[in-house]
């Protein structure tokens, strides 16, 4: 008897992230023929992305393809995925994954399957050439950066002026000069047309994408061991496969933007160290203020 799992994803169906998830779904449905079947019910049109964690918790939906950052209200510790400098593989090996598994079960009524599309970080993109400082950093105070709530605190701590806007408004803001910088992943940056205005990319990247595939725990427990094994195995191999795909796509799209005239500004020395440490500090401090219980343990595995 085939079990059906209802799933939703957090981006529109054509988006890279949804496409990646749909590949996972295909793999499961192929391997699980007759045992388990994932039925994708849609994306943001079915459930608003920041409420999907709640819907998974209360069993409205069985499976999610949603970043941990979108339901930190339920599992604040999930921020460790984006603050981490380690790859999903390392985290699985050093026991961090099992710890997270415990936390997600307790707080989000969720069972984690995989941290997919990992490895890509966020970059700051600027319209004007950033002014370098003596310590290898950048004069952040010149920047008016469009941000999402996820990294707002960090950008403010850098000393930049931050404006929170939805993706639909950014094009016009860049065109009109309301903002002169933007923070986003390389992946998908061009699809919004922003690369036309932001001719400089600041390296290194900060944070990393934290897209998870997870399931409602009750639903997971109700699955046959055979179905669980199919899901776990496919998830594990897909975690690797998707990270490789992201790396390849990121490289490709970065090159396309460089070919179109984008220049890279690389931080170095003390400026770079400060940039990265401020990024990680902002996240860990916020996690600690929300719930300190697991923080020291998490630091051991993720930092």
């Amino acid at each position: 008897k085939e079990t059906t799992i209802n799933a939703v994803h957090f981006t529109p169906a054509q988006n890279t992230y949804a496409q990646s998830f749909l590949k996972f779904v295909d793999e499961v449905n192929k391997a699980g023929k007759g045992v388990v079947k994932i039925n994708v019910r849609g994306g943001p049109e079915v459930l608003p992305p920041d409420q999907q964690g709640e819907a998974q918790k209360n069993g409205l939906i069985d499976m999610l393809n949603t970043p941990a950052g979108l339901y930190l209200n339920l599992v604040p510790e999930g921020e460790a995925f984006s603050a981490s400098t380690k790859s999903p593989e390392e985290v699985r090996e050093n026991g961090g994954w099992d710890l997270m598994q415990k936390i997600y079960a307790k707080k989000g009524n969720a069972h984690l399957l995989a941290h997919i599309d990992a490895g890509a970080g966020f970059h700051i993109f600027t319209v004007d050439q950033p002014k370098k400082t003596d310590d290898g950093g950048i004069d952040w105070s010149k920047l008016k950066i469009r941000s999402s709530p996820l990294y707002r605190t960090f950008l403010e701590n850098l000393g930049a002026t931050v404006i929170v806007q939805s993706p639909g408004e950014i094009y016009t803001s860049l065109e009109r000069g309301v903002v002169n910088a933007n923070a986003y992943t390389i992946l998908g940056y061009q699809s919004f047309g922003w690369d036309k205005f932001t001719k400089y990319r600041v390296d290194p990247s900060f944070f990393q994408t934290d897209v998870l595939i997870s399931m409602n725990k009750d639903k997971w427990d109700s699955l046959s061991p055979e179905a669980q094994k199919i899901l776990t195995d496919t998830a594990k191999s897909f975690e690797k496969e998707s990270a490789e795909a992201v790396e390849k796509d990121t490289k490709e799209q970065a090159q396309q933007m460089i070919d179109a005239g984008q220049k890279i500004v690389t931080l170095s020395g003390k400026g770079k160290d400060e940039f990265l440490s401020k990024a990680s500090k902002a996240s860990w401090q916020r996690m600690e203020s929300r719930d300190p219980t697991y923080i020291s343990e998490l630091r051991k595995h993720f930092q």
Partner: peptide, 21 residues
């Protein structure tokens, strides 16, 4: 233009946003 709906449409459909605007 400007139109946030057009921007959304462009980015969802992989149409050049500037051209669509």
């Amino acid at each position: 233009p400007p139109s946030s709906l057009a921007v959304l449409l462009g980015s969802l459909a992989h149409i050049d946003v500037g051209a669509l605007l």
